[in-house]
């Protein structure tokens, strides 16, 4: 009996979904817009996070040595740095490398090039680029270098970069928070619109519900097909939305790579199942919930 019951409810939901084609179409359209908004906000969050990670990855401490520093002295400092638990990676840049990098950076500047030629010898010292395991560890590493009073060190650029890095981090995490705020607000608006669309769609069924009650149908039997319809709105809308993002991310991807250094299309393809699942759940919950609330009003005896 329960199988017959469920079968009837599902069939009634599908039939009504199909026969009220224009209402279903309108509801799905609005739901697609809402889900599209949720999806776009999701992608923009991913982009922001990727940017933040990229910036954080660029943080390091550079130690510049005096030109007179001996390689042995530098090597012993490098060894004691490597012994610190916070340090993950140390890159040694020799005096020659420094010069090469400097030349390359200023190759279009004739004045600098000719000054170097005039100087005749390499004015630059060697350097160490230190990367910590965690951004919070830089403070300790910087303290170690500063308090050690190593005579061979010319300067440590941490303090100067820290300001810029801190500010950048604050901006990005700030915009991420704002982004979450916007996501929540826009998501709520989208849900309200969907909710109202479905409610209006069901309000036109007011007399229908009354007739069903008079014929002696139980509340559950009247309501369930509407819930099935709400489910279908959400399911179809989530499929449509997921498919919409395919050409969109494909088109946006080259621009995103250029601007954020992040491949949206690849991300979309790699996460398409989770992405679809999220939209599907949002759509289905929204559809079923809206139908439930909308029918409740007319089901009161």
């Amino acid at each position: 009996m329960i199988v017959t019951y469920i079968g009837r409810v599902i069939k009634a939901g599908f039939t009504s979904f199909w026969r009220n084609g224009s209402v279903s179409f309108a509801s799905i359209l609005v739901m697609v817009l809402a889900l599209f908004m949720i999806g776009s906000l999701l992608f923009s969050q991913v982009l922001l996070r990727a940017t933040l990670d990229a910036v954080k990855g660029k943080i390091d401490i550079s130690v510049y040595f005096k030109a007179t520093a001996l390689e042995g002295e530098i090597a012993s400092l490098q060894a004691s740095l490597a012994a610190l638990p916070e340090v993950s990676e140390i890159e040694y840049i020799s005096r020659e490398d420094s010069l090469a990098i400097f030349r390359e950076r200023h190759q279009n500047n004739a004045l600098i090039s000719s000054s170097l030629e005039e100087l005749g010898e390499n004015p630059l010292g060697a350097a160490l680029n230190i990367r910590a395991k965690n951004p919070q560890h830089y403070e300790n590493i910087a303290l170690f270098l500063e308090e050690g009073n190593f005579p061979v060190i010319d300067k440590v650029n941490y303090r100067k970069n820290k300001l810029v890095i801190d500010r950048l981090t604050a901006i990005i995490s700030g915009s991420q928070k704002v982004g979450i705020g916007i996501t929540v607000v826009l998501g709520a608006i989208a849900m309200l619109i969907v909710f109202n669309t479905i409610r209006l769609a069901i309000f036109t069924s007011k007399t229908e519900i009354e007739i069903m009650k008079l014929v002696g149908a139980s509340r559950r039997y009247i309501r369930s097909p509407y819930l099935v319809e709400g489910f279908l709105y959400g399911a179809v809308a989530s499929i449509v939305t997921t498919l919409l993002f395919w050409p969109l991310t494909y088109w946006l991807s080259p621009r995103a790579v250029q601007f954020f250094g992040f491949d949206l299309y690849l991300y979309y393809i790699a996460n398409i199942f989770q992405f679809f699942l999220l939209l599907f759940l949002s759509g289905v919950i929204l559809g079923v919930f809206s139908s439930f609330i909308a029918t409740r009003r007319y089901l009161k005896v």
Binding site: K213, V215, G216, R219, V301
Partner: peptide, 14 residues
């Protein structure tokens, strides 16, 4: 009760 009413209505043809 709200679940009894439908049962009674099934016994009245309208």
């Amino acid at each position: 009760l709200s679940e009894e009413l439908p049962m009674v209505r099934r016994r009245m043809g309208t």
